[in-house]
Design a binder for these strands. Structure first.
Lengths: 365, 365
DNA sequence: AGCAACATTGTTAACGCTCACATAGAGGAA
DNA sequence: TTCCTCTATGTGAGCGTTAACAATGTTGCT
């Protein structure tokens, strides 16, 4: 029970008895009758109101236990106009990032006493996300977190009519929606600077799906680091987050190397693609980091145990979950207070952290 | 719109207008007034009843659009006693399997017109899962899918009072709850037979968290294959699914090899641990599959791009999601029809499929 | 005593919807 | 015509809860 209330701080201490009066599941009136009070007093006890006599509370509690009464959340929601449910919209939860973010949001929501209703979409499209949002709204969620990989998606959401509390995760800025994101630019910047400081003349970049904001931001950080160092900026190679695309683009870099181009360091958009790149390099007989250094992004659990272990960038998804929930609850609060002034400009940035491991080293002489 | 109704077959075609009469969000009565009909007729139109004159339907539709009316799902749920929400309980969605299963269930639920309320737990405990189930039940979910890695968890659920439709995924058999699972035994058996057929004298096993049923079942399949072949059965090494544990147990096998034990093939409980094993073997200067063959389980997307590419066992999680939802909907249906006879013995098994890749080969001579 | 303040409980009316039933008109068969 | 059926619509009563207010009793103070 201790555990229970730790995990579900807002969950009721539910009893296990079952003793419906006439086969029906018991309602407040049943409890009231058994306890010899009015249903309203039962309501007061259930909701922990003050000003109920100790002895009455006990009697009601006993009746509740005896009948195995559970408060009907639907009826409650109808009259309070609060469902206690939040919505989450996610894309491709096969990917490590979205899956982790979802998990972080779920925990934060539960701790805040909210249920989570989830939609996960396969194809990235404004139609899809709007449909998902409408779907959730008509289920009466109090607000939504959208893990939205593209600016256009966030824009589509921001254009939704009616004052619906919405928060975007990784949704870029200036979209008129509050946003929480990891500082992709800084993370990429750190990674690339790390490689430059090791002595590489430049750093090539295999990016994720170029349509995704995360990808875009990492390109920005990569480019900025190169420009700051005054080194040449090669054309980034667009992938799609998959190991396969990492492999193929890795091969194309190998080919360019064979043609004489100096490729000694590759910053890859995520760890999965980095695995593909490692494979391509290995097949070409190139040593990592002896011949080529590789840095990934995400810090998947296996990164440390690849051969070589992968230098990568860690993102605190739990923190992202917490922050986005805090923002959303803020939205809900202000909306409830009638102040229609949207806090659309709110923006919380969670830092990324470079994890240096075995796949990055000085360039060959 | 076409896309919308593909993704949300049961979603309403929601309008985007907003025009509340007195600041309030419009209700059926508002629509009725505007259309010059009774609220009941509006209800009929909204629910697609027959026996409404074409022209009336149109008039009501127009009013609905004009006001931006959405049906209040809470009020509907209160009177119909159907929330259209299902619950899912999952453990450690960081792991590939649970995350994929969740995703499969989500899709199947959406296609069946159900919302999904999710709880994901960190520690595996009967208290935790019961609390989660109670939490969801008191939110009035119509049924629950529990992705339950341990028999004891399923037993705890089965012991819940009241007729709550519940389905377990990977929950073992004989627990009194309907169960959907991947045929772990067969998958493991296939993997081990593959190795034996390559000529290995025996196959060592690094198992996942021994408390998990998946782990147990894979051990069973592995053992059975060895016994059928009449080869010695080494003691399995218990891990915890993490790459780290794979690495450490891999090292211990390397050590035993150094002491003269013949270790030429390792069947590993999942791909993440297999990655750790590959690392340990590599560090010891052993070649895969030249010196030691390795087979994993799960077929994570990167398995194909590891070096060497990983032979592993594929699980059709989408199918698991579909089956479990079908089972749950069946439960809900029978419960609704009063027939209290639980279909507790129902059991659907989804086959696993071996994917032979580069990490398995004949033993050294 | 007399009155105000407070604590405790009860009564009634929503919340927004669906269900069961009532009603009215149209059409057909006897 | 008369009655019965069928279609189209309306009426009223809940579903189980909370909120607002009313109605007690209880205490303390002048």
């Amino acid at each position: 029970m201790l555990l229970t209330s730790q995990v579900f701080p807002h969950g009721p201490e539910v009893s296990f008895q079952m003793n419906p009066p006439g086969g029906r599941t018991p309602v407040m009136a049943d409890v009231a009758r058994l306890a010899g009070v009015s249903h309203q007093t039962v309501s007061r006890v259930v909701n922990g109101h003050p000003n109920v006599r100790e002895e009455t509370v006990l009697r009601v509690r006993r009746a509740i236990d005896e009948l195995g009464y559970h408060r009907n959340s639907t009826a409650r929601a109808l009259v309070t106009r609060r469902t206690n449910v939040l919505g989450v919209i996610a894309f491709d939860t096969t990917l490590f990032g979205p899956a982790q973010t979802l998990s972080g949001i779920e925990r934060a929501a539960r701790e805040a006493g909210y249920f989570l209703s989830m939609v996960s979409l396969d194809d990235v499209s404004p139609d899809g996300i709007v449909a998902a949002a409408e779907y959730l709204i008509q289920q009466s969620v109090e607000g939504c977190v959208a893990i939205a990989p593209q600016r256009s998606l966030v824009d589509a959401l921001a254009a939704l009519p009616g004052p619906h509390p919405l928060v975007a995760v990784e949704g870029g800025e200036g979209s008129g929606l509050p946003v929480v994101c990891v500082d992709q630019v800084q993370g990429a910047h750190d990674a690339v600077r790390h490689l430059l400081e090791l002595g590489h003349a430049t750093v090539h970049h295999i990016e994720g799906d170029p349509l995704w904001l995360e990808s875009e931001a990492r390109v920005v950080g990569w480019r900025r680091a190169l420009e700051e160092a005054g080194v040449p900026v090669p054309e980034p190679l667009p992938g799609d987050w998959s190991p396969r695309s990492g492999y193929e683009l890795g091969r194309s870099l190998v080919a360019r190397r064979a043609e004489g181009e100096r490729v000694t360091a590759i910053f890859v958009g995520n760890d999965q693609m980095a695995i593909g790149v490692l494979r391509a390099l290995h097949e070409a007989g190139l040593r990592v980091p002896g011949d080529v250094s590789v840095v990934g992004f995400d810090d998947v659990p296996e990164a440390e145990y690849l051969t070589p272990s992968l230098t990568t960038v860690f993102q605190d998804f739990a923190q992202v979950g917490k922050e986005s929930l805090a923002l959303l609850l803020g939205e809900i609060g202000t909306e409830r207070n009638g102040s229609s002034g949207s806090s659309g400009t709110a923006r919380r940035v969670v830092p990324a952290r470079l994890r240096v491991r075995g796949s990055s080293g000085p360039p060959p002489p």
